Lab assay of single mutants.
Amino acid sequence: MEVRTIKVFTTVDNINLHTQVVDMSMTYGQQFGPTYLDGADVTKIKPHNSHEGKTFYVLPNDDTLRVEAFEYYHTTDPSFLGRYMSALNHTKKWKYPQVNGLTSIKWADNNCYLATALLTLQQIELKFNPPALQDAYYRARAGEAANFCALILAYCNKTVGELGDVRETMSYLFQHANLDSCKRVLNVVCKTCGQQQTTLKGVEAVMYMGTLSYEQFKKGVQIPCTCGKQATKYLVQQESPFVMMSAPPAQYELKHGTFTCASEYTGNYQCGHYKHITSKETLYCIDGALLTKSSEYKGPITDVFYKENSYTTTIK
Rank of each mutant, 00 (worst) to 15 (best):
E2W: 14
R4W: 10
R4E: 13
I6C: 12
K7P: 12
K7T: 12
V8I: 13
F9S: 11
D13C: 06
D13H: 09
N16M: 11
H18R: 07
H18I: 03
T19A: 14
Q20W: 06
V21N: 13
V21Y: 09
V22F: 01
M24F: 12
S25Q: 09
M26N: 14
Y28H: 05
G29N: 13
G29E: 13
Q30V: 11
Q31P: 08
Q31M: 10
F32M: 14
F32L: 13
F32I: 14
P34S: 11
L37T: 09
G39K: 00
A40Q: 14
A40Y: 13
D41F: 06
T43R: 11
T43P: 06
K44A: 10
P47H: 00
N49C: 14
N49W: 15
S50A: 11
H51T: 05
T55K: 10
V58C: 09
N61F: 14
D63C: 08
D63A: 12
T64V: 12
R66H: 11
E68R: 07
A69E: 03
H74F: 00
H74E: 02
H74K: 02
H74T: 08
T75W: 01
T76A: 14
F80K: 02
L81N: 14
R83D: 05
Y84C: 04
M85S: 04
S86F: 09
A87T: 06
N89W: 12
H90V: 11
T91D: 03
T91C: 08
K92H: 03
W94T: 03
K95R: 07
P97I: 11
Q98Y: 10
V99C: 09
I105M: 03
K106Y: 09
K106E: 15
A108N: 05
D109H: 10
N110S: 04
N110M: 08
C112G: 08
Y113E: 03
T116C: 15
L118W: 07
L118A: 07
L119I: 06
L119T: 02
L119Q: 02
Q123A: 05
Q123Y: 05
L126N: 02
F128S: 03
N129I: 05
P130Q: 08
P131L: 05
A132W: 08
L133K: 01
Q134Y: 09
D135S: 09
A136W: 06
A136R: 02
Y137D: 02
R139P: 02
R139V: 03
A142N: 14
G143P: 04
E144K: 09
A145L: 01
A146G: 06
N147L: 05
N147H: 13
N147A: 10
F148P: 05
I152T: 09
I152Y: 05
L153G: 08
A154H: 03
Y155P: 01
C156D: 05
K158N: 02
V160W: 00
E162M: 09
L163N: 06
D165N: 15
V166Q: 04
E168M: 15
E168D: 03
T169F: 08
M170L: 12
Y172F: 09
L173H: 08
L173M: 13
L173R: 04
Q175F: 03
Q175K: 11
A177P: 04
L179F: 15
S181Y: 07
K183F: 11
R184I: 01
R184M: 04
R184E: 00
V185S: 02
L186E: 12
N187W: 03
N187R: 11
V188I: 13
V189M: 09
K191Y: 09
K191D: 03
G194M: 03
G194T: 03
Q196K: 14
T199S: 07
T199I: 11
K201I: 09
V203W: 14
V203F: 12
V203C: 10
V203D: 06
A205D: 01
V206H: 01
V206F: 03
Y208Q: 05
M209T: 15
G210Q: 03
T211W: 04
S213P: 08
S213Q: 05
Y214L: 12
E215R: 04
F217M: 07
K218G: 00
K219D: 07
G220T: 03
C225Y: 01
C225V: 00
C225F: 02
C225H: 08
K229Q: 14
K229D: 15
Q230A: 13
T232P: 02
K233Y: 04
Y234K: 08
Q237N: 09
Q237D: 09
E239Y: 08
E239G: 01
E239N: 08
F242Y: 00
V243M: 00
V243E: 00
M244L: 05
A247H: 02
P249C: 06
Q251A: 09
Y252D: 08
L254F: 00
L254R: 01
K255R: 10
K255L: 12
H256T: 12
G257K: 03
T258A: 10
F259V: 03
F259N: 02
C261Y: 00
C261L: 04
S263C: 13
S263F: 08
E264D: 03
Y265E: 00
N268F: 03
Y269Q: 15
Q270P: 08
C271G: 15
H273F: 02
Y274F: 08
H276E: 01
H276V: 04
I277K: 02
I277C: 06
T278P: 01
S279D: 14
K280P: 01
T282Q: 11
L283F: 08
C285K: 09
I286L: 03
I286G: 04
G288N: 06
A289D: 15
L290R: 11
K293V: 09
K293F: 10
K293H: 15
S294D: 01
Y297R: 03
Y297F: 10
G299V: 00
G299P: 10
P300C: 13
P300H: 12
D303A: 00
D303S: 01
V304Q: 06
F305E: 01
Y306A: 04
N309R: 10
Y311W: 08
T312L: 13
T313G: 06
I315D: 15
